[in-house]
Design a protein around this nucleic acid. Structure first.
Lengths: 197, 197
DNA sequence: GTCTATATGTAGATAGAC
DNA sequence: GTCTATCTACATATAGAC
């Protein structure tokens, strides 16, 4: 499975305009260190650029976050479109979503879900920033909702939220215990449950 | 249900030695703002104390975190002991755990699970700090494990982790969508599932 | 125990030279 | 576009007076 599936490690960070390299590096650091724990200096250092350069491209850290979220959303949209082609069946689509946890299992076990952990961090006292971040969740949720409708479920909204809650819980616990076995076990449970729908 | 059940709002913050008032206020702010987003100045201001005073009681922010975790763990232990008296039956105990989400639903919807969100924040690049924080999770997990054994389950460890994953996922999604209905729906699903065990 | 003052580092952000 | 220099604010932490 390609690294593109995570929605985080989206592109190589070399041989691109600096603006894109900055977004790619910020994307990675926001994931591995957290948004509030990542500074312009960190990003600049990793790229061998100056802080001033970063501020030329992004007036504020806020703007940089928006760019990172836009990048992730673009990546997510492409992934979901790919899945729609590969899996015509509704249940197969739900199962493919569940499997996302295993794609980047090494990262998930260390840093949690990129979407979930960023959202939760911002939800606490930066709800204005979280608004945009939640759009990422909504991309997945609406896609799941559609798949649920497809298999004839009337409770498609509730189902889509439940499936996301299950995957978020799995990613979180796996990260807190740094245990990939936990991730695999929760994946299996979720797939079995989807099969019974 | 008393406010004590959350493990966060543990005691009144008045008419106590300043050391305890500091821990209680830090406890609350670490929850509502996050650990890294809370400074000594914030805690001191809320109490009308000086920063120097805080540093007299706690040499470092690290130490303050340890004190907060110890406070929460003491509160959790008492709560679990109370539950053991009130609910002799294993399944009833599992259901009581599930209901914890609803006790402080207004807070959970705004700030997530106090344990889970703190752990996840620290798990990213402060794994040393997370070690202590994870002890809180272990208190619950071992308690759940015991209840699972009680109902004759051989997969008690896996079950205990699954139940925690479900509750963490529910708390997280409810916070990200600021939706108490989501919390209630996930609670109902979890209780129904426990009933079928 | 509590305060003020201070040291030291870092964060986000701007100005201006090249 | 990119750099250096700088501003201002704030963070953690210490020293010493009361």
């Amino acid at each position: 499975m390609s690294r593109q599936d995570s929605g985080v490690a989206v592109m190589a960070e070399q041989k691109q305009p600096n603006r894109e390299r900055i977004v790619a590096t910020a994307n990675r650091l926001f994931y591995t260190k957290g948004y509030n724990q990542t500074s312009f200096a960190h990003v600049a250092d990793e790229l061998g650029l100056s802080k001033g350069n970063l501020h030329y491209h992004f007036r504020s850290k806020n703007e940089l976050l928006d760019a990172v979220i836009d990048l992730r959303m673009e990546s997510i949209k492409q992934m979901l479109a790919r899945w729609e082609k590969q899996y015509p069946d509704g249940k197969a689509r739900l199962k493919r979503y569940a499997r996302i946890l295993l794609n980047e299992e090494a990262d998930v076990v260390r840093y949690g879900c990129p979407m979930g952990s960023l959202n939760m961090e911002l939800a606490k006292d930066q709800r204005d920033l979280q608004q945009h971040s939640r759009d990422m969740l909504e991309l997945f949720r609406r896609w799941l909702e559609k798949a649920c409708k497809q298999i004839g479920r009337r409770d498609y909204r509730a189902l889509s939220l439940h499936i996301m809650a299950r995957s978020q819980g799995a990613a979180m616990m796996a990260a807190l215990y740094a245990d990939v076995g936990l991730l695999k076990a929760e994946y299996k449970r979720l797939v079995d449950w989807i099969e019974m729908l």
